[in-house]
Amino acid sequence: MVLQSAWFFLWGLLWAIFFMTDGFDFGIGTLYPFLGKSERDKNMMIHSMGPLWDGNEVWLITAGGVTFAAFPLFYAIMFSSLYSALMLILFALILRGVSFEFRNKVESPAWKKVWDACIFVGSFLPALLFGVAFANIFEGVPIDQDGIFQGNLFTLLNPYGLLGGVLFVCLFLLHGALWLTVRADGDLAQRTESLSGKLWPVLTGVVVVFLVASYIFTPLYNNYLANPVLFLVPAIAVAAIVGIKYFLMQKAFFKAWLASSATIVSCIFFGVIGLYPNLFPSSIDAKYSLTAFNASSSPLTLKIMIIVVLLFVPVVLAYQIWAYKLFSGKVTDDDLAHEEMY
């Protein structure tokens, strides 16, 4: 019981870290065609995330891997239920990944245009679809007693699901704009700063709507009403959003980005806590829901995996923080001129 519950929250944490890290890459990729006016702007934007995106994406692979290892039944049913959505995410991520590598290898405007488009699609689509997927999990998915999904891609595109998509896109847009403000210089940095100021009220509005809609469309609040102390988590989310504004006004952009990270993590945790112990609630009948208890691996696997995770994730965090430190300063022309770069 304890082990399965621990895994439930570790599962949530790994996904939250993925959205916190790769989230700004998705945001920058989505902003890319709109903010990248000159070739220098575009290279600056790619460069701001270039050293980090690959390590960020591994959080997805790890989150997926531990879902598989800790909750195989959930992994199997979720991934096969969301088949089309996941395939779209996959193709998008594939195109995004190669675009960074391919774009600057051939000096041709047409060539670059193709990969520029892939960067946008490859960033925007996963941001939207991950939001749609998670919102659908929050409200429940039509799975029957055999774990077979009674719906299709369009079942997922219901109002609350789409709202989840909008929420994720907004979270990541601001997250990306803030990271760019930290790393870009000159005109681009000024534009991302002013954009961050404009995105902030939009995000705040969407978050409020989402919290209210969650009350109407989902059972997420039941856990909170049973344990009011848990309301701390959405309170942290709200505080973090206020923090973004505060640090933006102070022009402390890195701190604003940290506040944005905290916003993303607490938003995810708002859902994860409300979900507990469900991993994949069935909207047909609660009996068919997959939970941390009926979908988990054997105790031995859970034990081994928790040792691996507790041992290695801190190490991963340590060297990733080092990498972030190394690449959190302003991108210089010297950096951009370096031939080995993308």
């Binding site: 891997g65 598989f68 290892a69 992994y75 691996s297 696997t301 995996m305 691996v308 991963v316």
Partner: peptide
């Protein structure tokens, strides 16, 4: 999943991250 999933997850955590 009990066994195969664990090996994949270990791969990601221990090596692929690095």
């Amino acid at each position: 999943g009990d066994i195969f999933g664990a090996l994949l997850a270990i791969e990601a955590t221990v090596a692929f991250f690095l």
